[in-house]
């Protein structure tokens, strides 16, 4: 299989994208309703450079993400910075990336599904 060359997204831009995503998720009534009981600490790591972030979700509401890894994670998400940024921007379907092996996760399947559901509510308004 030929490797697709993708641009790297810098750590600052990635954090901006993640922050924007967290803000949108926090404002979504559907996220609050369906994921209201969800508490999860997510570590997000770019595989093409050292950028790493922590996103804490309490009662379905994501707090502002922070740079670096803090605490023990419930879920770890790894991927190329471009793939991660595309997901946070809403430019890519997280499940398609996941099914193609572009992003990898560690943790319980329920948390992976809830994280995807959050993207679905934010960008598809379902």
């Amino acid at each position: 299989m030929s490797e697709v060359i993708r641009e790297s997204v810098g750590a600052d831009e990635l954090l901006d994208a993640l922050s924007e995503y967290a803000t949108k998720a926090g404002a979504s009534p559907r996220v609050g309703k369906t994921l209201g009981g969800w508490n999860c600490r997510i570590h997000i790591l770019a595989t093409d450079h050292d950028a790493a972030f922590t996103l804490v979700i309490s009662g379905g509401r994501p707090a502002a993400p922070t740079a670096g890894l803090s605490g023990a994670a419930d879920l770890v998400v790894r991927g190329h910075s471009f793939d991660l940024a595309e997901i946070f921007w809403g430019d890519a379907n997280p499940v398609s990336n996941y099914m193609q092996g572009a992003i990898r996760t560690q943790g319980r399947a329920e948390d992976v599904m809830r994280l995807d559901a959050m993207a679905m509510f934010v960008f598809l308004g379902q």
């Binding site: 600490r41 050292d50 670096g68 890894l69 605490g71 023990a72 994670a73 560690q106 943790g107």
Partner: peptide, 13 residues
């Protein structure tokens, strides 16, 4: 980022 982040640790495995 100045230093590489440590490896993540899973709370439940």
């Amino acid at each position: 980022m100045a230093e590489p982040s440590p490896q993540p640790v899973l709370r439940r495995a």
